[in-house]
Design a protein around this nucleic acid. Structure first.
Lengths: 239, 239
DNA sequence: CGAACTTTTGATATCACTCAAGGGACGTGG
DNA sequence: CCACGTCCCTTGAGTGATATCAAAAGTTCG
């Protein structure tokens, strides 16, 4: 069965118990993916979005560009994540979505989404739940950037990503692929790449993580969580 | 007519053209307010929210408390704003909502909200729009805290609040009541109160603002917007 | 009028930034 | 298969923005 490797079903399955019919619907919706290269924009600021994108493989991010050229990453998209559900209401995107690694992506037209939601209230609820979790994550990030030190911020992000990757079966032994550069990390947390580098060294020196070849391994999860004050509750994934 | 002083109608009227019937419905919903003192929590982290709160007068905020005791303000609620529409889906609040000034508040039960939305698609759409704007604001705040200097952050917040207060008729001549202490401002932007104080002095020295007696006056809006790189688009209020 | 906040100021400390350069790693083309 | 370019990571040195601590001055309110 495709369940095991369908990240949408896996993710949504954490929010609601899905019937076989629901699974079939979701399976059908997530076919027809295309491959997109790394560092390619999927939706640009100012675009009028037509439908929704579903990420099936790879990692992407939302960001805003300042007039100074500075980039602020606002969210990460992992397999099973959707670009804005309610996009139809908004005429224009206020941010850009870009792939970080090579990605497999499905375009879902607005009417298919609408049909989906009316056909299965369960799916409807779980999709709404997804956007609520996204919002909660945004709040958590604001706390992160607004009030934590560099090391704490990075630790917090790593803990969050572990829970999210685990939920879709892409983390094993507290380890997951992380196609981010240190500059990306900096643009996520409001830090310079140099300072990210030094903070990572500190995390390594303390025996908390290992990060090489685009793969992160958390060596001491309890201690990393303590550093980050991490509480997975906001992700509603049973982290 | 109550229109002019009903902030919910004024705010929502920016998103959708409301019929007289819609206005009547909204008018009815927003009666029965009670007065609540300044610095009082309305909903606490961990609470299971029963229904929605509508703020009719005064100013409130959402915040998260860190285990260190540090507080991070995550959003401001102005008249016409609602506490979480989809609260019903979430079992537990992940943050606290507190009044900043004396507030006039209406409790709206979940079923009334649901009836409202089914009765008038227009109102339903505009309420969904409200939550989208809230989300966009959160993204903007993340950019603010993640990438702007102290002065820029404060300038940006002041510009945002001007547009929002104007939309509900509570700003005149680029001036509005602002019941925040400098410590509150600091907890909003991830700055110390001392540094907020010094940045405010800089804004005053540059002839951009006046702030005294809990009232902010923007003396040179174009220049303040330039400092903040402010673009009101995300608020969808036609600011 | 006094108590409790809030704002302001000064002095010092620190975290994080910038600039600059060297050292991988990796891929591409010769 | 090597040479080279490019991108990323790492290191060092110096600077700057913002934090902390402490106390005085101003404000608000009972």
């Amino acid at each position: 069965m495709g369940d095991i490797d369908n990240p949408l079903i896996r993710k949504i399955g954490h929010f609601e118990a899905l019937s076989d019919a629901d699974r079939t619907i979701l399976e059908r919706v997530s076919t027809g993916s295309r491959l997109i290269g790394a560092r390619t924009s999927l939706i640009r600021e100012g675009d009028r979005p037509d439908g929704v994108l579903l990420l099936m493989e790879g990692m992407a991010c939302r960001y805003k560009l300042r007039s100074t050229g500075q980039r602020q990453i606002i969210a990460y998209l992992l397999p099973g994540d959707l670009s804005d559900l309610d996009a139809a209401l908004l005429k224009k995107m206020d941010h850009t979505i870009t792939t970080l690694s090579v990605c497999r992506v499905v375009s879902i037209p607005t009417d298919v989404i609408e049909r989906l939601i009316t056909e299965s209230p369960t799916i409807g609820r779980s999709l709404r739940m997804s956007t609520l979790v996204e919002e909660a994550t945004l709040r958590e990030w604001l706390v992160n950037v607004g009030s934590r030190s560099a090391m704490e911020r990075i630790a917090h992000l790593f803990c969050e990503l572990l829970v999210r990757f685990k939920a879709i079966g892409l983390a094993h032994n507290n380890s997951y692929a992380l196609p981010l550069t240190q500059a990306d990390l900096g643009e996520t947390m409001g830090l310079s790449n140099v300072h990210v580098n030094r903070s990572l060294q500190e995390l390594r020196r303390d025996g908390l993580i290992e990060l090489k070849n685009r793969r992160l391994t958390i060596l001491d999860l309890p201690r990393l969580q303590a550093v980050a004050e991490f509480d997975a509750h906001y992700l509603r994934l049973g982290g």
